[in-house]
Design a protein around this nucleic acid. Sequence first.
DNA 1: ATGGTAGAAGGTCTA
Length: 261
Amino acid sequence: MKIAAFNVNSIGARLPRILEWFDAARPDVAVLQEIKCVNEKFPELEFGDRGYNIAVNGQKSYNGVALLSKFPLEDVLKTLPGDETDDQARYVEALICPPGARPVRVSGLYAPNGNPAPGPKFDYKLAWMRRLNARARTLLALEEALVICGDFNVIPQAEDAANPGAWTQDALFLPETRAAWRELLNLGLTDALRQMRPHDRLFTFWDYQAGAWERDNGIRIDHMLLSPQAADRLKDAGVDRAERGKNKPSDHVPVWVELSA
DNA sequence: ATGGTAGAAGGTCTA
């Protein structure tokens, strides 16, 4: 089963590019971040025609996530528990049920950016990561194949940035952020990309500004985390880096894992 | 040198 995560930076502005990628990559499951549209504006027909079941948690202008699956969905959840007052659309989760094969639970997320730090946005980022940690604990206790994936807005290590020195004051790389990331991994999750490709440059984001792509001034902030039961089934993982060089690209590229059936 | 670009909304914010 191929599972992908892609921060598309507006599904409306990017639909032809995104469909082209779906037709080439053919993921069984994909979670999309920053769709930047309300549920009613999501292009359900285009994905329905390609055989996907859809769960959308949309929002006007900002944020917005969606989960697409060739297999039936159960247990759909569209809020990250732990804060009734949080109205930002950043989370979608479902149990993927392939007929005649083992199910996989997929959690798709768009974590807060957190800049500027310090400040209320950084506080929100750290609180959101604590809620994600609590959700991960709950899901890990189920002892299922589980994939928690998407745009975490975390640069885990210096080797995950072309120029780590430029990020030392940034919310994506501050010690508190990286500590929250480590606490998540130390629950027993596997960073599938780093595990599968320990020595590769695995950048997933290049800013639109200052020729970041042309200079390969990238960072790794989109991740695929696997429960032990999913890590046992890990066959391959990758980053579709070439998407960033195409016309009118997102500033992020897709990341994916392949799990054995 | 405190810029640069992109997107959605709509006369500004977020990333």
